[in-house]
Design a protein around this nucleic acid. Structure first.
Lengths: 203, 203
DNA sequence: GTCTATAACTCGATAGAC
DNA sequence: GTCTATCGAGTTATAGAC
């Protein structure tokens, strides 16, 4: 029911703005496009959201808001390391399957204005991987996994889950695979990423 | 000598344009910014490069041009698989250490207009991983590495090498590391990425 | 709340002097 | 080759009727 002509005007604007911003970025998006996409006129956009900047922020924060609590839950959980690596990649991949354009959108804004990004997104309180870092060190000491730099391992975990979404056109072109095949590959990755990591670090 | 006030005007424009485009993307960059960055005025920009689009293309193609031959050389070489994985990650990381903002720039443009991107960048002739794909399959059959999907393995190789550059602000904020520490991590990765991959797939 | 019309502004591009 | 000045298209934002 959300996001069709029966939704409230405000909800339709937000849905339309999300599509347009996420496709074109802040600078590339035009208010006219958003209005057309929502089936209304520009004036009404300004009636609901004073200006483009405020609308952008709203979309931006909303798109990611539901993700951070999930990620934090994984990072803070008491699950054993291998299980945690599985949950980690599944949470990421599930989010981006639902919002495939979000990663590039976030990366672009984060790189353009890192300060403002982190302030607006987290208010100085980003997800904290401390517990996971310690857990990795412990498992190295306990001899369960080979000696690895915990920071490098976390960078690897994030890279393997996020990058395929931003590199999609490259993978499709270079490996000559269709959209459907790519989505199949992503579904496989949901489980296989953790397997790939664990195979690398287990003793 | 390149890129200071003693360089030729044309060279200074190109260097300035690169910085501005790469930071803000095509849509976000303004000719005024480029002129300021180059220490000249807008009119002169148009004197050297007829318009923004042509200037953008010039930067775009030039930035990546030296990379593809190197990558192709690795992909087509007769080196054994493990050696090839090492060369692969080293070629990527060396390029992006030299041009740290290039990955996000390329990913943004590639996602916004995939067709035009590949046409302009390669003229329909992108780097071909076929030989590497076959090589991976052979090593699986030969029992040198565990059974892996060759496509997934290549996605992993690229993800692990490229993503840290686009995720840099996130890693710095979340792991609470400085710019200098991040660069140290990247230098470590140059060797460790291949090690991480090989540990995962070797029997 | 929603619309039409238009003001105000940004930015790429050009004219023309030096 | 380089500059100042300005035009004109495209966009954000507002005024005001309904």
């Amino acid at each position: 029911m959300v996001n069709n002509e029966h939704s409230s005007t405000e909800a339709r604007i937000l849905a339309a703005a999300k599509r347009v911003f996420v496709k074109n970025g802040m600078a590339g998006a035009r208010m006219q496009d958003i209005a057309d996409e929502a089936g209304i006129n520009k004036a009404l956009l300004h009636y609901y959201f004073r200006n483009k900047e405020l609308l952008f922020e709203k979309i931006f924060l909303e798109s990611a808001a539901d993700f951070w609590p999930q990620l934090t839950a994984v990072l803070e959980s008491d699950a054993p390391l291998f299980k945690k690596i599985e949950s980690f990649s599944e949470v990421y991949i599930d989010k981006f399957v639902a919002d495939p354009y979000l990663p590039l959108f976030v990366l672009s804004e984060m790189n353009r204005r890192p300060r403002q990004f982190f302030k607006k997104m987290f208010g100085g309180n980003p997800p904290n991987p401390q517990k996971l870092l310690v857990q990795i060190e412990e498992q190295v000491k306990a001899g369960v996994i080979r000696p690895v730099d915990p920071v490098q391992l976390i960078i690897n975990m994030i890279s393997l889950t996020v990058f395929p979404f931003v590199g999609k056109p490259m993978f499709m072109a270079v490996m000559n695979i269709s959209e459907a095949d790519f989505e199949k590959q992503i579904r496989v990755r949901r489980k296989e990423v953790a397997h790939f990591i664990i195979e690398s670090i287990k003793k």
